[in-house]
């Protein structure tokens, strides 16, 4: 299985990941190599096998519906690149 540069660009866009145009071919080669490795799985018969999402067979624990968090906006927003009037600022969103 080999990926084209075009596919790499498409995936990169889906992941919102900037990639230098000069690196696209190298990524395409590396990703294709990984997919070749992964292709080993094709030979394994898995029709009757249930997928395993977690190592341990446990059920989700539930949390009591209690408010435990206090306002820490100042602390959190001290980390933000751009805030104003308590809001995180981003380039204009067009709907």
């Amino acid at each position: 299985m080999s990926l084209t540069s075009e596919q790499v660009n498409k995936i990169a866009h889906l992941a919102r990941l900037g990639i230098d145009a000069s690196d696209v071919d190298a990524y395409a080669r590396d990703l294709s190599g990984i997919l070749d490795l992964v292709a080993q799985l094709d030979a394994q018969q898995t029709d009757q096998v249930l997928p395993m999402a977690h190592p341990l067979d446990q059920a989700q624990r539930l949390r009591a519906d209690v408010v435990t968090e206090e306002d820490q906006r100042e602390l959190f927003q001290a980390l933000a690149p751009q805030v104003e009037e308590g809001l995180y600022l981003v380039p204009k969103v067009i709907e």
Binding site: Q82, E84, E85, G86, L87, Y88, L89, V90, P91, K92, V93
Partner: peptide, 15 residues
């Protein structure tokens, strides 16, 4: 929520 009032041409986000 995204708030589209004008913050110097930017959008404000309230989470």
């Amino acid at each position: 929520k995204s708030l589209h009032e004008d913050f110097h041409g930017l959008t404000g986000v309230d989470l």
